[in-house]
Design a protein around this nucleic acid. Sequence first.
DNA 1: CTGAAAGCGCTTACAG
DNA 2: CTGAAAGCGCTTACAG
Lengths: 351, 351
Amino acid sequence: LDRQRDNLLKAKAIKPRATIKTVAEDAGVSVAAVSKVLRDAYGVSPELKARVQASMTKLRYRPLASARGMRGRTYTLGLVLSDIRNPFFSDILAGANSALERTQYQLLLGISASDTSLEDALIDAMIDRQMDGIIFIGPRLTKAEISAVAERIPTVIIAHYLPDAPDYDTVNDDDQHGAEIVVRHLAEQGFRNIAFFNLRMVDEDRLSVSTQREIGYRSTMTNLGLTRHIHVVSSEQTVRDIQTTARALLTSPRPPEAIFCWTDYYALEVLSVARELGLSVPDDVAIVGYDNTSFCELAQNALTSIDQSGQVLGLQAARLLVERIDGRTKPEHFVMAPRLVVRASSRRNPR
Amino acid sequence: LDRQRDNLLKAKAIKPRATIKTVAEDAGVSVAAVSKVLRDAYGVSPELKARVQASMTKLRYRPLASARGMRGRTYTLGLVLSDIRNPFFSDILAGANSALERTQYQLLLGISASDTSLEDALIDAMIDRQMDGIIFIGPRLTKAEISAVAERIPTVIIAHYLPDAPDYDTVNDDDQHGAEIVVRHLAEQGFRNIAFFNLRMVDEDRLSVSTQREIGYRSTMTNLGLTRHIHVVSSEQTVRDIQTTARALLTSPRPPEAIFCWTDYYALEVLSVARELGLSVPDDVAIVGYDNTSFCELAQNALTSIDQSGQVLGLQAARLLVERIDGRTKPEHFVMAPRLVVRASSRRNPR
DNA sequence: CTGAAAGCGCTTACAG
DNA sequence: CTGAAAGCGCTTACAG
């Protein structure tokens, strides 16, 4: 290998990458001193620091994450995602990236397809690659599984209801309250027969945001005296299944006056099916989503939704994770207030 | 640190991770032998191999990527993406992941926001983390910049027209031909005044897929005797700008009979704006996209598009990258045939 | 404040 | 076929 590299260097005339040793020699200091400057560690004189920094710049030195990882950190954070299609994730990602912008940390995403066993494999792969920490978005792991991960690596969970998790941080909006706001809004607009369209999960998970929203829906319906109108349908997260379920709901003998969908992604499909059936929104059926993703604003959609600022959630998650890597052990549970954004899809014309 | 870890181990009773040394001791062989089994390297007897594998399983041994990276490979591949919102990327990703499923390689994504300087930073971060190779999707880098990267790390480019790149592989569909198919289809349906809606780039890049599609559009229009109808508009990749441009185009004094959009993402917005303006599709204006993403199928959209199978592109890219890491130096340029999928958005009723 | 030295967990040429 | 040993580029206690 060494010889191979030497040949390559000669053949292509590539300058070998500067190492900490090169920098130390250039600056006339020890390797340990360079390492301290690199980590901004305690106990280096300003003069030495300046000299080392000059050499680093001059030699375009960049530390190798693997080598750092052998003793310390890799300065790499993992983000585990199950589906990149949901536009809400894009907001979260932007927030997390912005939080890390001026740091040495780099966020890398792993996408696990729908399979749970692949999610496990991905987590292992990230631990093997010595991520300094992991962020999960809406994980399909059980509480015990999350704790097992958190025991091995600093962990932050976005969008999963775990308000008293002791070993990791969580970042959420108040999903029960968000659902309450939606139902109250629809009731105020005069809708009574309000259905909830949920995500179907293999094992029902009380802690998932979708279930939390359903809980909020049910309790608010009850509080408003609409118990007999409670109606929950669910489908898996595929375009096909969502459409089939929406069509069945809308063509049933007594279709709902309003449909509250657990996420915009579903609501946009429902909107599409409703129009396909020749229904007018919101006159024949009102539709509300959750997440206030950018597609809600399109004039064609004009979808009422709950804003929970993915940007803020992502930013908070990245911050909390870095704090935890830096040694915090007391868990923090950030909860953001949901905010209703009313658009045409649920606004009844004044009569 | 070592003491800290010891304390942690005692306190939490976490078993320390098995290392190659532990495995070697357990199997009663040398560390070098274990390493060979790990890499399936030449020169180990079946007996020794079986013994080592038994110990690895028993101890749940997983090699540490950093340590491997210090001398050899990290078995990590980087995928550089500028925008996760485009649903086409999700197909590519699924394809790449499936190609790597039974290998030791793990794909990790880096998302660079719209900024080019961030793309550079991301590439550096990936090289610092010793990715064994990088895949780019539709990079905004110049040919020289790509070559500079390919000099340092095995590289495969998806969706960028570089048919004679000497130092890296490319994976594409034939974009000029795809555009030709679209224009011929529209002409056959009786449309004459066919506009092309392109991506606006800061520096026009002849090699981008969008420009390639424009080239195909222009030449086919000319070949069909429709030169005087050639009309190209462009916008940046934001919902707002796409909408504004679409609205201007559709409300102009002499609006096009058909709009061919460089990608579905744009076409879906144009569709939305057309409906908002009360136009009927395809009677008032036909709309065609590119990529045949899952949203095209929605009944509400029924968008005609070019299928170039993101799955296949992703799979090919991952395969080519692994081959290249394994030593292939002769470049391969995979080109896939585009295929038109006609839907209601461009189908004229028979008269 | 500064540096010499050990060591992280692997791979690799080399010797046997 | 098998193994001892050097070494990858860092960080960290420790000594000065």
